[in-house]
């Protein structure tokens, strides 16, 4: 089983990408998509040593919803800051201590941080315990860290890591 279907989640995702790429729902394309979704993970097995597991799919859906809303809000914030006076900006670097351990959760968190209000993740410390975040305009750094941890990190920890 492990050799024949190494990444059960990857197959439907690849099939979906193939169907979007050819932009049709014909039976032949679905079969071809399923075949590609099966053969690509088997051929590229050596590049993917870790197995991805999602422990709480419903929470992931809810998280993505909140996240989409935050992206839109973030853009209004950033637009306001850019159109305002650049001299007034107070950029700051913040070190966020990480509770999540797995590489996938850390990279997910870094991406989420980069797309939400006024923050860009800049570096993960070599021991994977701190994430350096650059904030565009922030005076209260502790509140920023608390928001990131409660709003994004806690759900991600539940989704990608066993309790």
């Amino acid at each position: 089983m492990r050799r024949l279907l190494p990444h059960p989640l990857l197959t439907p995702v690849l099939t979906l990408i193939w169907l979007l790429l050819v932009n049709s729902l014909e039976a032949g394309q679905i079969v071809l998509g399923l075949f590609l979704g099966w053969v690509l993970p088997v051929l590229t097995l050596q590049f993917w040593p870790e197995q991805v597991r999602i422990y709480k799919p419903m929470l992931l859906m809810r998280f993505l919803g909140i996240f989409l809303l935050d992206i839109v809000l973030a853009n209004f914030t950033v637009a306001r800051l850019i159109l305002g006076r650049p001299e007034r900006l107070q950029p700051v670097f913040v070190n966020v201590p990480l509770d999540v351990k797995s590489d996938l959760a850390i990279s997910f968190l870094a991406n989420v941080i980069s797309l939400t209000p006024g923050t860009v993740s800049s570096r993960v410390s070599p021991d994977h315990r701190y994430l350096l975040v650059h904030a565009l305009n922030e005076t209260d750094t502790e509140a920023l860290v608390a928001t990131i941890k409660s709003r994004y990190e806690a759900p991600l920890k539940e989704i990608f890591e066993p309790c």
């Binding site: 992206i71 973030a74 853009n75 950033v78 637009a79 800051l81 850019i82 159109l83 650049p86 001299e87 900006l89 950029p91 980069s114 797309l115 006024g118 860009v120 800049s122 650059h134 565009l136």
Partner: peptide, 19 residues
Amino acid sequence: LGLARLKDFYTRLHGPTKA
């Protein structure tokens, strides 16, 4: 506009990534 207008590299990074 953010890319062209802001003062240092790290703040310039915000415009293109989000907006």
